[in-house]
Design a protein around this nucleic acid. Structure first.
Lengths: 136, 136
DNA sequence: TATAATCCCTCTAGTAGCTATAGATACAAG
DNA sequence: CTTGTATCTATAGCTACTAGAGGGATTATA
């Protein structure tokens, strides 16, 4: 039986965030102490770790809700879980591709060595899309 | 003198978003038609394009506000603009690095070919951080 | 046992950057 | 003149939290 503060320290999830997850129904409302403070068990800890980990991997809360549900039913086929992970993987790849193009763009405009705004590539590029080297 | 709908089509910025930018003070309130509809000039168009482009490059609105301000004063030194772009470039590089690690992780867990949840790597990995190959 | 330091409670409101909705009005084409 | 589309304002909602106010609970030390 640990307090919310200890749970927070062990999982790295901030206290208000834990309460927020409870409110959103991602974790069960835990038992309370005599003085009405939350007291968590090992189950609470592992469930929150699952959530934390999934969030680090960038899954939105709604997906995590599904994944948690799936994880409670070990006999089910796991195609759904794969679907979610694959969908997210595609998303991540898209984002990497976009950001990589962006990096090139930004490097180019940040390298400008003029010394006033009139001749500055940063401003000029932002103002005129046609100067861009890549699509975005 | 073009309507908000035409402005939207030409810049690719949605109508409610244009109004939102006006409300946030990023673009000036334009003239109105007799019937109180917004009518934009070429200046409005280019300012909104600047914003659009900057957003595509991922700048937050507050940075764009500064960049717009700078672009109005061509005689100023452009060190500030470079600062903003460089700060953002670092940010983008961080995000790429994180997402790339993440991609590896996701690929690994999405490749699982077991057929029920009990033995599924997706679920297992999410539940147990120690199975991860990389830091995140 | 008293007290101070720390922890925790609920509730409300705020963040970024939009997006959606409702109900009313304006405008353009035929 | 009618019909259909475009636009108006105002308000509420979205994700995933975060911050603050005003109070009570728990724990460590004197």
């Amino acid at each position: 039986m640990i307090s919310i503060g200890q749970l927070s320290k062990r999982t790295g999830v901030k206290i208000p965030t834990i309460r927020y997850y409870e409110q959103m129904g991602l974790i069960d409302a835990p038992e309370r102490s005599v003085g009405n403070q939350r007291r968590y068990t090992k189950e609470g800890l592992s469930r929150l770790s699952f959530i934390r980990h999934s969030r680090e991997l960038g899954f939105p809360l709604e997906d995590i809700r599904e994944l948690l549900e799936l994880s409670q039913h070990p006999e089910k086929p796991c195609g759904d879980a794969h679907g979610i992970a694959n969908r997210h993987l595609n998303d991540v790849r898209d984002r990497i591709a976009k950001l990589t193009r962006l990096e090139g763009e930004l490097k180019r405009i940040a390298d400008c060595d003029s010394d006033n705004v009139a001749a500055c590539a940063v401003i000029e590029t932002l103002a005129d899309h046609k100067l861009c080297e890549t699509e975005h």
